[in-house]
Design a protein around this nucleic acid. Structure first.
Length: 505
RNA sequence: GGCCCAUUCGUCUAUCGGCUAGGACGUAAGAUUUUCAUUCUUAAAAGAGGAGUUCGAUUCUCCUAUGGGCUACCA
């Protein structure tokens, strides 16, 4: 069997949509699992919609996610060029072949004429039933057509669909899909406007020439799959036609329709891997990277949206996904995008992540707040605090008290926990704190203080809560002796002094 | 409108004719804890509707409904 070769072929019309990321991921998993190649092709046959920067954005997105291509734009390879705008001459050869073999024809109808026709006749379709009443080489004849072309008249090339044929699309996910060719229109294969092929032609030619074995793409392509099957046939490539797999779509979390660019900002979660700044409007769309997501969490979350391993395992690394992924196990129906589950995945991966790595990210927030610190201390705090957050960004607001002493004390907490006898007990605790030296010994210090409480007959809550209030300013946070371990003796005593001065005597 | 695809808890999903319909997110309650979280336990929560096939249908077939996609010289 031929070596597996799959491709991801986006249009550079803007930032990469999260649904596109998932499609690419599935292609990647499939390629790796079969020891095949993963090709990156740019489908820029629509010159009108080209957006500068989009191509680089897409490449950087996959770099961040850890999805690697074997060949294609910016990666090299033997089947280039991999940008469709650089393959014009190649497509022309096959357009001519189709024309010569009678599978395509030249049409002179202008966009305005076509529009008028569509208005005039409801459900108008350019096909076997109407083509002979239109302005094309089929009715004009070869000579007249040649004369018009020589005159520089604009024309398109349309596929000539033979009606009444049963076309079979064998889909790896959906099984057999039958369509009657009579309902397919004579699609434009070659545009007059920019002298480029349309998606349909370019796609088939490139997949053939690049020896693509499996086309794994979104469900929005299912309706044109029969046309593609026909094109392979008309070009004489049926024997080597790739297998198809049409993936279910990612849907909006609320309401109807597929997930769109606007949903992200409307509902408060990113729909793009990286932050994107629209070059025209200057509008900024948030990205997963900038929002504090770990790439491995995004991958894991996305992999499970429309696929599952058939077991109850949910946490899977990229390598595990490569082993477990099966196209046949993809679901057939669209998946609503559940942001909450994405958060949970990030939480899980944050717990597994190396504290040093998180600290290096968090220290940026700390210095941005104008606070000096060292990475060792940050790493220690991360170890104590990460279990309570889903995003690195949430860490600093939650942890700032480790660096910044409280300047006020939460009123409700004072009322509840700062009783009449509290100042006396806290002064006694002050001496206990002062007499202890090994603050890194968290368990030891805790045992020491608890023993002291017991000996004195103080309920733990009457000691720990006001103690916390003095050091933190409110009744929240990690274990007390983790706090003192980070603060150290000197700072602990200093905060207690400040609290004695500020709180009721 | 036409064509295609789909339909199990609120959400993502398991089930490939035997079901007391399983898991996860989220939600609620409880436990643990010096606080807040984390964690743990428990609970509520589903086969769109109608026919048919069958000893037996969530599973197979058909119809209806609903959702989605496509219907451009966009991809």
């Amino acid at each position: 069997m031929d070596k597996v070769r799959v491709r991801f072929a986006p249009s550079p019309t803007g930032p990469l949509h999260i649904g596109g990321v998932r499609t690419a991921l599935y292609n990647y998993l499939f390629a790796r699992q079969h020891g095949g190649d993963f090709v990156f092709r740019i489908e820029d046959t629509d010159s009108n919609r080209f957006v500068p920067g989009a191509e680089d954005y897409i490449i950087e997105s996959f770099k961040w996610l850890g999805i690697k291509f074997d060949e294609g734009v910016s990666f090299g390879g033997e089947y280039g060029p991999y940008r469709q705008s650089e393959r014009k001459e190649i497509y022309r050869v096959y357009v001519d072949q189709l024309l010569r073999d009678g599978y395509a024809y030249v049409a002179f109808d202008t966009p305005e004429e076509l529009e008028a026709k569509r208005k005039e006749i409801p459900n108008f379709q350019y096909d076997a039933t109407t083509r002979l009443s239109m302005n094309n080489s089929l009715v004009l004849g070869g000579e007249e057509t040649a004369r018009r072309i020589a005159n520089g008249e604009k024309y398109v090339v349309r596929i000539k669909i033979e009606p009444g044929q049963d076309i079979l699309v064998n889909d790896l996910i959906r099984g057999e899909v039958h369509v009657n060719s009579s309902i397919i229109d004579d699609k434009v294969l070659y545009k007059s406007a920019d002298n480029l092929p349309t998606y349909h032609l370019a796609n088939i030619v490139d997949d053939h020439l690049m020896r693509i074995t499996h086309v794994i793409r979104g469900e929005e392509w299912l309706p044109s799959a029969p046309l593609h099957v026909l094109l392979y046939k008309y070009l004489g490539w049926s024997d080597t036609m790739p297998r198809f797999a049409h993936l279910p779509l990612l849907l909006k979390p609320d309401g109807n329709g597929k997930l769109s660019k606007r949903d992200g900002d409307r509902l408060g979660f990113p729909v793009f891997p990286l932050e994107w700044r629209d070059p025209k409007t200057g509008d900024i769309s948030s990205g997963y990277r900038e929002s504090g997501y770990l790439p491995e969490a995004v991958i894991n979350f996305l992999a499970l949206l429309g696929w599952n391993p058939g077991t109850e395992q949910e946490i899977m690394s990229l390598d595990e996904l490569v082993q477990l992924f099966r196209l046949e196990r993809c679901s057939k129906s669209g998946a609503k995008f559940d942001f909450e589950k994405g958060k949970w995945f990030n939480h899980q991966y944050l717990q597994m992540a190396d504290n040093r790595r998180i600290a290096e990210e968090m220290i940026k927030d700390i210095t941005a707040a104008g606070v000096q610190t060292d990475i060792a201390k940050v790493e220690q705090v991360v170890g104590f605090m990460k279990s309570r957050v889903s995003f690195i960004k949430e860490l600093w607001p939650l942890c700032s008290f480790f660096w910044i002493a409280p300047t006020s004390y939460e009123e409700k907490a004072v009322q509840k926990r700062w009783k009449e006898e509290t100042p006396r007990i806290m002064h006694e605790l002050y001496d206990v704190v002062k007499a202890w030296d090994d603050y890194d010994d968290i368990d030891g210090f805790e045992a020491h203080v608890k023993a002291w409480c017991e000996q004195k007959g103080y309920p733990l809550g009457n000691v720990m809560n006001p103690f916390r209030l003095m050091l933190v300013g409110e009744l929240k946070g990690p274990h007390m002796f983790e706090v003192t371990a980070v603060l150290g003796k000197e700072e602990t005593l200093r905060r207690m002094d400040a609290a004695f001065a500020a709180l009721p005597k």
